[in-house]
């Protein structure tokens, strides 16, 4: 069985979901309540591969909310993730994806030193960050999205916001190594890590975000922001392809301007309907088929019986591993989501 550990994007989102599910206690109370709430296995999942294989999984809501980080409640955030991990391990789940911020919290707060949770010791082999598949899918969205929206990759300047992150650095490696783009712009805050990345890649121009955006034909957003930033579409090129892979999203609100195209980054579309309920709470046009690439990685590992931490740590994702997970992704029927995001106000056809 596979597992998915996830969280919602902010308190009001969490309250809305709780209300929709009929949990009044959770729906009408403030952050304090979520700070005390234990993880819950709230959904059972059945997914069929195009190969015909059928697997089962569980979704565990960690009750983590990004406001906990914004308010400096680090111990709370750490507890949510550790308790969610303990829950899936106790249930004997073989491989679980740490979705969204869960892997970031694990990494930033060195949870590998805190694996003793009450009466169990967490086994990291039972978990994956899901970042290899996410990075792969983002790169497919760049390459295929460019073609779809009339951007010639060979002439394209691509900005990666969050370039030094686990996913961001992997995207940079692939774009440098495998995609024939014109120029790569590296955007993040820490200068030292940017320098190291630039050295490793042997290419890439370091720029702050406000300077990178007007120069970019394609922007891959994959920074770990507690909340999105406001972007003025007037300052962007046209055509411009914005691929927002942040969770919560890196770009706040909707952006409407002819020639601006937005994709929900790091999302896949399956070839078959999936039996679950959780995705109907996230703003995707077709929740039966569209979902996060990091979750998909856990499913791929389960399909293939690869029960180990395929994606782990930060900055270890290689182009080879991305190609490997990419071929498994295609094998089982996943495709990068290329439909315009609802954030763009573009009409979604059919």
């Amino acid at each position: 069985m596979f597992g998915l550990i996830g969280h919602l994007t902010n308190l009001s989102h969490a309250q809305r979901v709780a209300r929709d599910l009929g949990y009044d206690e959770y729906a009408s109370h403030d952050l304090e309540f979520w700070c005390m709430a234990p993880p819950q296995a709230v959904d059972e999942i059945t997914i069929t591969s195009v190969t015909g294989q059928v697997i089962h999984g569980q979704y565990v809501e960690s009750c983590f909310l990004p406001e906990m980080l914004a308010q400096g409640r680090f111990k709370t955030a750490m507890r949510k993730i550790l308790n969610a991990m303990a829950l899936v391990q106790k249930r004997g789940i073989d491989i679980t994806a740490l979705g969204g911020f869960s892997s970031i919290i694990f990494e930033n707060f060195s949870l590998d030193k805190l694996l003793n949770v009450r009466d169990i010791t967490l086994d990291i082999q039972r978990f994956t960050t899901g970042n290899t598949h996410t990075a792969y899918i983002l790169c497919q969205q760049v390459e295929q999205g460019a073609v779809r929206y009339g951007i010639d990759p060979a002439k394209a300047t691509v900005a990666v916001v969050g370039a030094t992150g686990d996913i961001g650095s992997a995207v940079c490696r692939w774009l440098t190594d495998r995609a024939g783009i014109h120029e790569l712009l590296l955007v993040a805050r820490d200068a030292e890590r940017l320098d190291r990345l630039q050295q490793e890649l042997g290419t890439g121009r370091i720029l702050p975000v406000e300077e990178a955006l007007p120069k970019a034909d394609i922007v891959v957003w994959v920074a770990s922001m507690n909340q999105g930033m406001a972007i003025d579409p007037a300052g962007l090129r046209t055509p411009c392809l914005l691929i927002d892979g942040g969770y919560p999203k890196n770009m706040a609100g909707t952006l409407q301007r002819p020639g601006i195209h937005i994709l929900d980054g790091g999302m896949v579309e399956h070839s078959l309907d999936i039996d679950w309920q959780i995705m109907s709470f996230l703003n995707v046009p077709n929740p039966a088929r569209q979902f996060f690439a990091c979750f998909a990685e856990s499913m791929l590992l389960e399909f293939e019986g690869l029960h180990f931490n395929f994606s782990w740590g930060r900055n270890h994702i290689t182009v080879e591993k991305m190609a490997q997970i990419g071929s498994l992704s295609k094998k089982h029927g996943f495709r990068p989501l290329l439909e315009p995001s609802q954030r763009s106000g573009e009409l979604v056809h059919g």
């Binding site: 700070c35 709430a37 234990p38 507890r79």
Partner: peptide, 15 residues
Amino acid sequence: MDKEAIVEDFMIAYG
């Protein structure tokens, strides 16, 4: 001892 942590731990065992 974090009160929050005690409540959460209680709810885990009790749940």
